[in-house]
Amino acid sequence: MSAMALFAREVRLAWAGGGGPAGPAAFNLAALALAPLAIGPDAETLAAAGPGIITFAALLATLQPAERIFGEDVADGTLELYALSGVGLAIASLMKALAFTLAVFWPLPALAFLGGLAYGLEPVSALVLSAGLLLAAPGLALVAAFAGALAAGLKRAGLLIALIAAPLQVPLLVFAAGAGRAAMDGTPTVLPNLMMAAAFTLAALVLAPLGAAAALRARLE
């Protein structure tokens, strides 16, 4: 099985299985809808809190389905087949995380734009926030996949993944939300924030699959 075939298979599975992108999108939407009810309807407060709440809701949405990334493969023996396939577990982990980003997390940047408008951000600021999440989403997915590989097949894996992944995702939260806030305040740190988010995602692209593969290999021994 080639890496591309594996990628295509994982995209199809992630799209079709377990509600696909609907789960995280609905979760994200619910979080965005509930936050103003807790904060209050004051427009200025909502706009000020907007980029932060939207990024935070997206981060939580990436943790919500993380258990699925490796959990089923460990349970049904797909993991052994991947290990024997000649692709290598690191490449397989990379393909899985990217397939998950593409098939399941694509609504998050779009919802960030709509959410930004709903929270009273200027369209340009909402677009910047959306771009920040677009750059951060693969990184968030990779870290979630790494945590998912560590916790695959354990009891209450979902809770464990959230506890492991959330602190590791802190930089992405800071940079993606920071880009949105900078755009809103008119400070010139929009581009640096976006570039830092991209840099973290690129680093995660290299390191997270290696970590996930090591965790999966430990399980196979």
């Binding site: 802190v170 940079f175 390191l207 970590g211 965790a215 430990a218």
Partner: peptide
Amino acid sequence: ARAGSILAMAGLINLPIIKFSV
């Protein structure tokens, strides 16, 4: 032991980045 060691190493790599971002 294996899973713990992998997580601790990932945390150690990420810690300076977290510190920088904060």
